[in-house]
Amino acid sequence: MAKPRTLVITGYGINCDEETRFAFEYAGAEAVIMHINDIIDNPAILDRYQIVSFPGGFSYGDDTGSGKALASRIKNNLMEELRRFIERDTLMLGICNGFQVMVHLGILPALERPIGEAQVALIHNGSNRYQCRWVDLTVEAASPSVFTRGLGTLHIPVAHGEGNFYAPEGILETIEARKLVTMRYVGPAGAPAGGEFPHNPNGSINDIASICDGTGRIMGMMPHPERGMFFSQRDDWTLLREEMRRHGEAPPELSDGVGIFMNAAGYFS
């Protein structure tokens, strides 16, 4: 079985490209990192790929709003090719800054086609401060998202200053009605975070951490699954290890984030 060909975009301050590529490769995809300028120089290259990922980072230093300037660069130079890519049976995953870029481009939630205009926003955290902390997420089983199929809860980190999901009235109802919310922030015991800090780290409306488009092939998420691939990346691994030792169990190698990438790589098989 051929490995799905994955393009991980970099440049202008994207900074999670290496671990995102590593995550896709670990999950069984073939992944390359490519500078956005090289793609703009040769846009036809997108035709060769099945998965595109916009990783996290600080594109253009978040100037004028997270993801805004990179979205403008894409809008001014690559929009048609990106639309063509999406029309094919492909996957697209945006993480953190990548999610913000996709929202500016209207790739998510893409309630109407053609895409191109923002319908929702990721605004300043309620604390107005960058938050790097581990969160618990529950997956919405009813969402069409390819990436979260079969997953239940995830314990992975967030790290952002502008992750506060906002949708105007009407849009929000449509997103919910169409089951486009893929993950929500919850407390450690699984109860809804109810907007409360720190379980909901940014004040997102309806505790929304991640959404997808109507096809389920495109997803954006504020938390970082690529930082929660392995057991020893968890913030509580030494405690879990100790508890497992006492029960005679061996600690696992993997952790929750890997499931997102496994689903992506497995989609094409």
């Binding site: 290496e18 790097c132 902390r133 790290a159 930082r227 691939m229 990346q233 405690l239």
Partner: peptide, 19 residues
């Protein structure tokens, strides 16, 4: 918590420890 200590996915013993 305002310094990203998770980027590059390599920090295994973290600045804040325990529950």
């Amino acid at each position: 918590t305002q310094y990203d200590h998770e980027v590059q996915a390599g920090v295994v013993i973290k600045p804040l420890q325990g529950r």
